[in-house]
């Protein structure tokens, strides 16, 4: 069997008496879009944090392209090619949109002119080029989320992990970000997304992993998962019952 792109094995995270992740295992192949869904408090963000270096797992391993990266610090994880965004959107408020993306681009382009060129390219891709001189604080939530994706892409990741990038968007904005993420995948970036917006999950995902109370409940194609009575009961509710 070949080495999996990202392999999460038996990851457990305990916080003083609370088990946020309990023996979670899954793997991601290159080029996939994998969604992680589950009710609030299921441990999705903790799992994200364990993979991206914000928490060290209490047990288990995270293997990235054959290399054990368990417990690596977040900046190191990023330099190895895994980028992420935050549930509560984070951009640099007193920088312009262009400068924000340049800050990410500097990782692999130490020279200013090259960082700027790459940043402008990404602003075209993400549809923010007309707003390049806006300050980060002046953007709408939807634009901030797009900017955050652009910043993450500027670090040239092989894997991009998005934490609720679609929450609170209008239907039009949702459509735009879905097509943006498809474009990102086309460019060879693998995606793992935590998402509550089922519409986006159904459209985008190749595979869905369901977490509940810190444990992996099931995984499968979007269709399989929404048809699973356990998933309906734990998370989706009667509305999704086939």
């Amino acid at each position: 069997m070949s080495v999996p792109f990202l392999d999460v094995r038996g990851v457990t995270k305990r916080f003083a008496g609370l088990v946020a992740n309990d023996d979670v295992s899954f793997s991601v192949s290159e080029g996939e879009i994998v969604s992680i869904i589950g009710p609030n408090g299921a441990g999705k963000s903790t799992l994200f944090a364990c993979i991206t270096g914000f928490h060290a797992p209490s047990a288990g391993t995270v293997t990235w392209q054959g290399r054990d990266i368990t417990g690596f610090k977040a900046d190191r994880v990023c330099r190895l090619g895994i980028a992420r965004t935050f549930q509560i959107v984070q951009v640099i408020g007193d920088m312009t949109v262009l400068e924000n993306v340049m800050t990410g681009a500097f990782l692999h382009a130490p020279a200013r002119t090259e960082a700027r060129r790459r940043a402008e390219e990404l602003l075209v891709t993400t549809g923010l080029i007309d707003k390049r001189e806006f300050l980060g604080t002046a953007l709408t939530i939807a634009d901030k989320k797009r900017l955050e994706v652009a910043m993450a892409l500027a670090t040239r990741p092989r894997l991009l992990m998005l934490d609720e990038s679609m929450a609170g968007l209008t239907p039009v904005e949702l459509k735009q970000i879905i097509s943006l993420l498809r474009e990102v995948r086309k460019r060879g970036v693998t995606l793992v997304i935590v998402e509550h917006v089922m519409e986006a999950v159904m459209q985008l995902s190749d595979r869905v992993i369901v977490l509940n109370s810190g444990k992996k409940l099931t995984e499968g194609t979007p269709r399989e998962v929404v048809a699973d009575p356990r998933v309906v009961q734990a998370y989706l509710g009667e509305r999704y019952r086939a």
Binding site: T52, G53, F54, K73, A74, D75, R76, C78, R79, A83, R84, T85, F86, Q90, V91, I92, G93, D94, M95, T103, G104, L107, M151, A152, A154, T155
Partner: peptide, 12 residues
């Protein structure tokens, strides 16, 4: 702006 943000941009 934020240590967390800096880290996800690969900044030590």
């Amino acid at each position: 702006e934020s240590h967390e943000l800096a880290m996800v941009l690969g900044i030590s």
